[in-house]
Design a protein around this nucleic acid. Structure first.
Lengths: 316, 316
DNA sequence: CTCCTTTGTTGACTCTATCAACAATATAGT
DNA sequence: ACTATATTGTTGATAGAGTCAACAAAGGAG
């Protein structure tokens, strides 16, 4: 039913398929004398970060009893050696012997070959998607800190991506047709071709390296009036203050470039943006109904006087 | 070093992280009386597709001995019942009892809650990416058939995506600057705004539902001369005949619309495209050096006479 | 009717996973 | 200094997983 249910079902389905294919539950790795737990233990020891049995137990989530016995077996096979911990009599510092490192290296080659075989078994196109998705999942889990939005300047492809995202979002949410996509494409083509660093600027908002919003500062017919254009924030990235950050950055830059006023054109249906503009110091100066993008809309012109304190963030 | 090495490393890293977080190797699922193998077995029985012990052994990849013992234990707990197989005395048809279905339902709730907790533990933004990536991986494995390219018409966002992909590819491979991206954006804005179904058309090539190429048929100044524009195929989707398919489709449609000739403008550095044009029946009619997109290039005009047999596929 | 395959069971054994008990050491509070 | 408490590592006991081998019952191909 709900989004959450569907998400859970998607992950479960993925889980099943992945488990079957990667053989994660195969305790004995193919052609290797080590069980999965042993292999993980060896891996931790080879990394050299975890050096006591208690640490291994915590990092790997294994029972201390099992660790103790496994280590004893490894010591008997000459794979590891222990030295007393300086300043703590009970602890024992663990390290791989030469032989242990060799065993680990063999294990590494083995896993690599297994995964390599998996990758090769897929058509090249799907293998690429698999790797990309794997990286996405790993990065989603790896980062312990919550994602922090940050702004960057334009890169190749940004003009197109902004066009695509806005077209898709407004088509989905408001039924706007391809006329709007063409308008955005033309605005951005004009922006790029008449770009002048003293009068124009653009920022892309990113979250975890993914584009989630944009804003453009464009010169108009009048020298001291700039235009704010194409502000948008991805729905799933809203509520993080990204819109506010984009508008504030744009206003500050416009002021730094010497603009006296900043105008923008928007539509009344875009209520989320409206709030951002108001709080940033914009005032509604005109409204006019029009039929565009296949819909009946009310266009709005907002204006922000940059010579007053407006937009300096005092109305936070 | 190589791409393949990096792919393998990415999947390994993913594997480790995922294993730790989803607890796939925890044989005893949290707060559940069933081991992972038992749970998988119950799942298969609940689906109702696999109904004999031998089938379970094959689908789950488990040892027949283990299956036999687990089933005996389940039968002892009143979770399953067996009926003789019609027409095969040795086989036994397995099914969950009322009690077994209840146990499975509880297990399901449990798993859902666990995964739900995992999803909830991530910031909403990352949770979305996780789900998207999970779906991508599942679909990469699930499909047994190799991906088949197919063409579709335009959807919202396509103009922008085509712009973005071409800008990124040509920036990466040939160092073209944003001037090119602006050109593509303008071409597509013009295409959309002057679109006329009797004279214009566009196709997007897809592989596994992902855009991997495009082509545009555009009317020009002369009524009976059409223009082929913005052909491209993603590097990782090349060698599948997608470029040829796009061009052939475009030519066929141009002919159907009554065009007498098809022209295209390209650059000499795009050698892959050149071969496609030649084989489709285009002939080089003019070349001219120019400085564009930050590079010294040689522009080419190719032309295809639609009144002869050219482009009908006889030069396959 | 014989040979071979499929299906299911049982025995034997190793290893994993887990719980409980316990000893050695370190630390914090009084 | 002394005591309570936590941490670290070990050992015993036990259920189940996983594997290999042997084997019996049934069916099918020649």
């Amino acid at each position: 039913m709900g989004d959450r249910e569907r998400d859970i079902e998607a992950i479960r389905a993925f889980n099943r398929i992945y488990t079957e294919r990667l053989g994660l539950l195969r305790p004995k790795l193919d052609r290797s004398p080590f069980s999965l737990s042993e292999a993980r233990l060896l891996y931790e020891l080879a990394q050299g970060d975890t050096v006591t049995a208690a640490e291994l137990s915590r990092t790997l989530g294994l029972d201390p009893a099992q660790i103790s016995r496994t280590l004893k077996r490894f010591a008997g096979q000459g794979l590891i050696e222990t030295t007393p911990h300086p300043g703590h009599g009970k602890r024992r510092v663990l390290s791989l012997t030469q032989q242990g490192q060799a065993a680990f290296a063999a294990l590494e080659r083995n896993t690599r070959a297994t995964i390599g075989g998996l990758v090769d078994s897929l058509p090249a196109f799907r293998a690429r998607r698999l790797v990309a998705a794997a990286e996405a999942i790993a990065s989603a889990f790896e980062a312990s800190l919550p994602p922090v939005p940050h702004l960057r300047s334009l890169r190749p492809g940004d003009l197109g991506l902004v066009t695509a995202r806005q077209a898709i979002l407004y088509a989905r949410d408001y039924g706007w047709n391809a006329e709007y996509e063409a308008l955005v494409a033309r605005i951005l083509a004009d922006f790029q071709e008449s770009f002048c660093a003293e009068r124009d600027a653009a920022w892309i908002a990113e979250l975890d390296g993914e584009m989630v919003g944009s804003i453009f500062l464009v010169h108009g017919g009048t020298a001291d009036v700039g235009k704010l254009r194409l502000l948008y924030v991805e729905p799933h990235a809203r509520g993080l203050g990204i819109g506010k950050l984009l508008v504030a950055t744009c206003i500050a830059h416009a002021r730094a470039l010497g603009y006296a006023r900043l105008d923008l054109w928007t539509n009344s249906v875009l209520v989320a943006a409206r709030g951002i503009y108001e709080r940033a110091g914009f005032r509604l100066v005109g409204e006019e109904p029009h039929h565009s993008f296949g819909q009946d809309l009310v266009g709005q012109i907002w204006s922000c006087d940059l010579r007053t304190g407006a937009g300096r963030g005092e109305q936070v």
